[in-house]
């Protein structure tokens, strides 16, 4: 896997965490369990720092997808896109290089072969 794809996956993990903290219901639940969620600014800083390392075009593509989906980048398991559960065409696999991100033709999510 290319470094830039690894960065994107790490960025997505961070975005999901930030989204969870910003979600009032989830953060209220976590706080009621005793967790202090005081470091949101630190998380945001880490996110911004990481985002700067992702190539601009790829980041823009990813961020556009995250406007619609929580999970914008996914591994391919079997022959399905695990985002929309549509079977990927055989041509998808013949065209795929293990190092390249592909796009699900149905939902547009970014896919990689782990």
């Amino acid at each position: 896997m290319k470094d830039e794809h690894r960065l994107l996956i790490a960025l997505q993990d961070l975005d999901i965490m930030i989204k969870e903290v910003k979600d009032k219901v989830t953060s209220r639940e976590l706080q009621s369990l005793g967790f202090k969620l005081t470091g949101l600014n630190e998380l945001q800083d880490a996110r911004d720092k990481l985002a700067k390392k992702v190539p601009r075009a790829l980041l823009q593509r990813y961020e556009k997808l995250t406007q619609h989906y929580t999970v914008a980048i996914l591994p391919v398991t079997g022959s399905l896109c695990l985002g929309c559960f549509v079977k990927l065409p055989t041509s998808f696999f013949s065209a795929v290089s293990r190092n390249e991100l592909q796009t699900c033709e149905n939902c547009g999510r970014l896919l990689y072969i782990p």
Binding site: A10, D13, L14, M17, F35, K36, G39, A46
Partner: peptide, 13 residues
């Protein structure tokens, strides 16, 4: 990825 995610989680609190 997991270690990085957990490290970030700890920075939240």
């Amino acid at each position: 990825f997991i270690i990085e995610m957990l490290k970030n989680r700890e920075s939240l609190g």
